[in-house]
Nucleic acid binder design. Structure first.
Lengths: 244, 244
DNA sequence: CGTAAAGTTGAATTCTTTCAAACACGGTGG
DNA sequence: CCACCGTGTTTGAAAGAATTCAACTTTACG
């Protein structure tokens, strides 16, 4: 996130840097303590779960490439999509480090993560990583709070505009955009379960946005057709700067 | 939160313990580094702001008594209430430790907080506190995620039932309940701005819940009249255990 | 005691959901 | 190569939940 003088929240520009900083500190660490619990790289294919809600002994991951989605199934079958994890983001940290996972993590694209075992021991030997981790967590917290605000205060079209811009910006910060287009593995149902709408209504709204020339989703690729118009839908949370 | 074998989330029983543990470690710490930056107690009266969104140089607080609410005003005047901070909870931590505050903190009751200056230095000298802090943050994260799920998947009456039970449980864990009653400083508008409803609709729904004998709010006191019925409204997230 | 803030009520409107059904696409097996 | 099948998307019409607007009542507080 970045902050304006009036305290309004802009999209998170330093956010991925926080993640990256944590990641890099970790990987470049030469402490013997850390060497003893070396970082492992793991590959997952699309549609594969990294872990399921309820799984025990979760560890901390850093997503190096791909796209991971965090979801949770309630008892009555409703599904909540919490957020997308993009390259450079952390995932897997929760209150009870080795308790049951609160949500499931599923790869939407072929993904590579590096697994950071024994975070507790890491803490004691490298306290500066702890601050970095906490800061990174606070960043995810802010993202979740933005979605909470988005869902409680906005209409369907505004919610979708927000979500699209949020994802686009995060990908762009990582250089994973192609001009105004990004790879977009989310189904309409995923959008619906993120924003608290029905897939049907997401479909209708998406169609309206396309007819109005704001954005287009085609073959797992999302293209922003009218960036400024989208921004004006979500208020002042996004800069209207033009991507390269 | 506590966890069931199936991975569902129950209300956070260890959550306040996490906060308390952090608080106590902090206060009982005898490190010279910490002594040099002594903890200060501060008192606020009801309706007084601890800080406003956009304020710089925020610090970390622990609420010792009272009730603090975290809110945020958007550019178009909509207000989002993020959560209530209850005794033993942390507040004030955010990604940019000394950047502008993301939201405002207002005391709804006369409150006492202890202010923890120079958290960064604390980190380097007492890494075990860092883990405790991160864990505490993860707890708040889970609470926010529960509200997100609540708001996106439930009707007005279910949302209110959830919110009431959530607050009741957290207070009960701290021994701040009087049987099925709790002190309740929130206005109907506060509930509305938490749950993404209008104050008018909250009013109607609250009335319906009262007529059905589920709960009652009178003179800043909330009484749960039919605990089991409320629980059944929100699914399996709350235990149906009877308070003392 | 008077004013402002908070709560209450009704009726009409709007947005979103629900249900039902059809369509498009990609992959599989015959 | 085509028929088949499942998943994901599309469309329509009716029903429902929550909002809006406007007015009124009650409560809190100096």
């Amino acid at each position: 996130m970045y902050f304006r003088s009036n305290g309004s929240i802009g999209l998170c520009y330093t956010c991925p840097n926080r993640h990256f900083r944590f990641c890099q500190s970790l990987l470049s660490s030469s402490s013997t303590e850390f060497d003893a619990h070396a970082v492992k790289n793991l590959a997952y294919t699309a549609k594969q779960y990294l872990y399921h809600q309820g799984d025990m002994n979760n560890e901390l991951f850093i997503l190096r490439e791909g796209w991971v989605m965090l979801t949770r199934l309630s008892d009555d079958g409703d599904r909540q999509v919490f957020r997308s994890v993009l390259p450079g983001d952390l995932l897997g940290f929760q209150q009870h480090l080795h308790g049951p996972a609160v949500y499931s993590a599923i790869a939407l694209l072929d993904s590579v993560v590096c697994k950071v075992p024994n975070i507790v021991r890491l803490y004691s030997t490298q306290p500066e990583l702890a601050l970095s981790l906490a800061s990174s967590e606070a960043c995810d917290m802010m993202l979740t709070e933005m979605y909470l605000t988005n869902v409680t205060h906005r209409s369907a079209r505004e919610r979708i505009a927000f979500m699209v811009l949020e994802l686009y910006h995060r990908l762009r910060l990582r250089g994973l955009n192609k001009g105004y287009a990004i790879q977009f593995p989310l189904k309409q149902e995923d959008i619906a379960d993120t924003l608290g709408l029905t897939a049907i209504h997401v479909n209708r709204t998406l169609h309206a946005l396309k007819d109005e020339g704001l954005l287009e989703i085609h073959k797992h690729e999302l293209t922003i057709l009218d960036y400024d118009a989208l921004c004006s839908l979500v208020g002042s949370e996004f800069e209207t700067s033009v991507p390269d």
